[in-house]
């Protein structure tokens, strides 16, 4: 039957759809932040979202506390420690090294922020930090303001992906920088991971439909009324958006319907 055949082909397309970072292969394209959670719900959120990568602040993991954030992240999940708290490239490097010492692996999300109010990333310092960390063998994922020239510099500096912000961290305002992220997706050959500002599953879905490689969220899930349910909603939305992108969306018409060949219909078929 045609329907079953089509469905099988859709399943095969999704199953084959993996992506790679630092030599590791992932099938989930939803990255969960852990910063604003109660520890007892982190595990549930990771599992319900189907996340394979979880970010955590090194500064938060820098504790002797018995029930630390590190213990609450399920095994098998790849940790993506971030350098939040760094104000310069050098500070980011020191925090990344500490992450290694704490046993968080070689992945690092570079955050260099000199702005306490909106937590906007310092792109210039981020490029410098990426360069230094890549040369130390880290798999570097820089959090950045979506600027094409900076993204190209990050590629040259050895980034494994770029992580443009959709809106200020924690704002839940969605894809405010949509048009600029679209440019990065078109122009940059590395995975583009939309990070920060995603407030609703529908916004995560839209980012994936645009062709983002993955979406990251924290506040939107952590501050939901039902955290595991919201985690699941994000996981589903990211999968749906990805499937939509892979399927190749049909054209969207600006105005009314259109004739099939309004301008070129006058041409007559020429005799051979």
């Amino acid at each position: 039957m045609a329907d079953i055949k089509a469905q099988t082909s859709a399943n095969a397309a999704l199953a084959a759809d993996t992506w790679t970072l630092g030599g590791k292969e992932f099938s989930s394209r939803f990255i969960l932040g852990s910063g604003k959670f109660r520890l007892d719900v982190v595990k549930a959120a990771v599992e319900d979202a189907g996340a394979q990568i979880v970010t955590l602040a090194v500064r938060r993991a820098n504790t002797n506390q018995e029930d630390s954030i590190l213990d609450s992240i399920p095994e098998g999940v790849t940790l993506l420690p971030n350098t939040s708290g760094a104000r310069t490239a050098e500070e980011a490097v020191r925090i990344a090294r500490l992450a290694r010492e704490l046993g968080c692996g070689d992945f690092v999300k570079v955050e260099v922020i000199r702005d306490a109010r909106y937590l906007l990333p310092d792109n210039a310092e981020t490029v410098r930090a990426t360069d230094m960390l890549a040369s130390e063998g880290f798999t570097v994922l820089p959090y950045m303001y979506p600027d094409l020239n900076v993204a190209r510099d990050l590629v040259s500096a050895g980034a494994a992906a770029v992580m443009p912000l959709g809106a200020p961290i924690g704002s839940n305002r969605g894809l405010v920088t949509r048009d600029f992220i679209r440019i990065l997706i078109e122009e940059i050959d590395l995975p583009v991971i939309v990070d920060a500002g995603i407030g609703r599953p529908s916004q995560a879905c839209e980012a994936m439909e645009m062709g983002a490689a993955a979406v990251m969220a924290n506040t939107a899930v952590a501050t939901a009324g039902n955290i595991p349910l919201m985690a699941r909603a994000f996981g589903d939305a990211v999968r749906a958006g990805r499937a939509g992108f892979l399927a190749g969306p049909g054209r969207v018409l600006d105005g009314m319907g259109e004739a099939s060949s309004p301008l070129t219909g006058f041409l007559e078929e020429e005799a051979r």
Binding site: R60, T63, G85
Partner: peptide
């Protein structure tokens, strides 16, 4: 609330 003993790295 979630008790946090430290959320800081001295750099």
């Amino acid at each position: 609330l979630e008790p946090v003993m430290n959320d800081h790295v001295l750099v």
